[in-house]
Design a protein around this nucleic acid. Sequence first.
RNA 1: GCACAGGUGGCCGAGCGGUUAAUGGCAGCAGACUGUAAAUCUGCCGCUCCUUGGAGCUACGGAGGUUCGAAUCCUCCCCUGUGCA
Length: 334
Amino acid sequence: MTKRMTPLMPDPLLLVILGPTASGKTALSLELAQRLGGEIISCDSLAVYREFEIGTAKPTREERRLVPHHLIDVAGPGEEFNAGDYSRLARQAIFDISERGRLPIVVGGTGLYLRALLEGLFEGPPRSEQLRIRLRRKADQHTIRHLHRILTRLDPDAAARIHPNDTPKLIRAIEVCLLAGERLSVMWERGREPLTGFRILRLGLDPDRNALYTRINQRCEQMFENGLIEETRRLLTAYQSPEAVDESDARPIARALGSLGYKQVVQCLRGEITPKLALWAAQQAHRNYAKRQLTWFRREPEVRWFSMFGNEVDVENEILPLVSKTDEAVSQGH
RNA sequence: GCACAGGUGGCCGAGCGGUUAAUGGCAGCAGACUGUAAAUCUGCCGCUCCUUGGAGCUACGGAGGUUCGAAUCCUCCCCUGUGCA
């Protein structure tokens, strides 16, 4: 094997940092970005919303001044934002960063968004709120199996892959079939459009479970001390939370008010639970979430795992060699 | 001190003579996931052993008792809550 004298321009590197909430992704990403001349693309379904600050653990203003961040605060609190939007915007950001000769670093905990970014989504119709309302009403009138029966009629293959109890996924599947006039499973088979043109290096953080849970508990407590309740009160005044939707209420719905931490604080503000219980429940929810994230990320291909927190990783000896090794491998034509 | 009400698996909580290792829920563990994903859903869940299916052991505050059989009935004791003193 001879070394190329005039090697083709190798694909630029794309760094991906993934891991559960509170595993130290931010710390690691900042260090790497500074050492490698990188910019960060957040991959977080809640950090995209403006005004949701404390409960989303966004990087601080100082951190964002240190390193440019993308895909944070790109949507209004009451706006609709989904995996497709994310995929498009994030890809654009990655191309722009790379164009400028900088290293794009994707950092995130939202598995679906990461997959939408790296592997793409199937080509499907957007959601139809009206159709969804109709389907949900139907579901309420019949047994739990009803939606599944409808889907089985429309697309048996898709139905076989969705559990009869999983109402939201059934609704989306039926919606797609009806709107597209085509089977979802057929659309799936046509495949996705993955992100190409980059060598992707995935770094995963998987610290000791008990230590992670302890850190999550502390971080939640910190959020409450930093004014999560006040922040939620302000948001709740301007927006409705997704549960307890009132038809006569003109305020837009902020979906993020139903997410970890905010949901529990909303219950507290409505007088349903005490602040103490809200904290306890928020901690619980974050722990459960971290576990689900790990389940998702375990399936992610080619992840270089580190069983420690992001701030504990020996960047100099553990990661920088990986980065240059990838460079080498490609320039040698492997 | 007296009178009620209670003490059930890590927690909450059903059961109130056999079909009960004991309904549920939570937590825990494992899993799924193609435009609501910080969402939604699934499985396992006393211990030990073997191959699915089982086998054995330990369990319903404690000690006795009644009974073929008790978490469930009786007696005494310990503890908790409430009311009266």
